[in-house]
Amino acid sequence: MSTATSQPQQDSRSWLLVSGVAILWLLAYNIVEPLANWLAYGLFSLPEGSHLGEALAFFFYDVPKIILLLGGMIFLITLLRSFFSPEQTRAWLGGKREGVGNALAALLGVITPFCSCSAVPLFIGFVESGIPLGVTFSFLTATPVVNEIALVMLFGLFGWKVAGLYLVSGLLIAVLAGVLIGRLNMERYVEDFVWQVKAGQIDTPNYKPSWTERFQIAWESTKEIVGKVWLYVVIGIAIGAGIHGYVPESALAGILGKDAWWSVPVGVLLGIPLYSNAAGIIPVVHALMEKGAALGTALAFMMSVVALSLPELIILRRVLKPQLIALFITILAIAIIITGYIFNLVI
């Protein structure tokens, strides 16, 4: 397109720029902790171990750390996603059997880029091309259940083990929900017009971006996502810091601990109507856990808040009859409750 520089030249420049930013990112990430301690205990000269000092050090450490992590990881995730497309995914899923198809669909659901308003056209496009309803559900369930912001925040606040468990259990839930819906022959609860849609053929090949364009795409969505959630992160961490500094240890063990068996289903039920993003809820959950809430209970609540969101269900209502939506919510809620119990048992 541009005549001044050739594409390879432009791409190597972009690589250089991205590498430079990556080095700066690493530097920034490593000075966050000393800087936070210096701010809280040095600049504000709060005594170490005091309530306010601990709360502030926690806040100054977590906010930049999480925002840096979010920025870096969202950039990498979007970059990876730029190699996938819904059209390619549909081609891969075509002709796959139940089971294998569901597993592949769940994996691809996490990695395929599409905006939430594309969910309905994707649903129609998948079903229309002959992909089984259950496999299509595994694909569409994986995206909200394995939320990338939640994944990054869990990694930042709880470490890779919890983030990994979240990823694996989310994938399993998506596979299970798809297999169940497939087995129950729910086709008649899909709105009738979906079966009548005749999709046209496009002869325009899928666009293959250059590296420079991939970096641009990744940078744009990083800016957009971080711009959208940073305030929730700050508020969430502020509440978390307050809990961290002021709520006594194990104050919550009685109501949110492992022995309170009822807290898992109550948390999940509470989470269905609650709609918040992972960015705000995870720091609070993290602080609650330090005070005796069980990991499974906390994760189940979080998954329910993030995955079962009303706006998305309302969009799906365009193509699904109420019975199927109700079944979908029920399956997800039960699967999340079971996940919560398993986590509480294992960890």
Partner: peptide, 26 residues
Amino acid sequence: YPEIMAYGVMSTPGLVINEKVVSYGR
């Protein structure tokens, strides 16, 4: 939706100029 799908476009937004799909999904 049916009209969008009739162009074969699954990932929105799509751009059609004189009935030819020139881009989709970006």
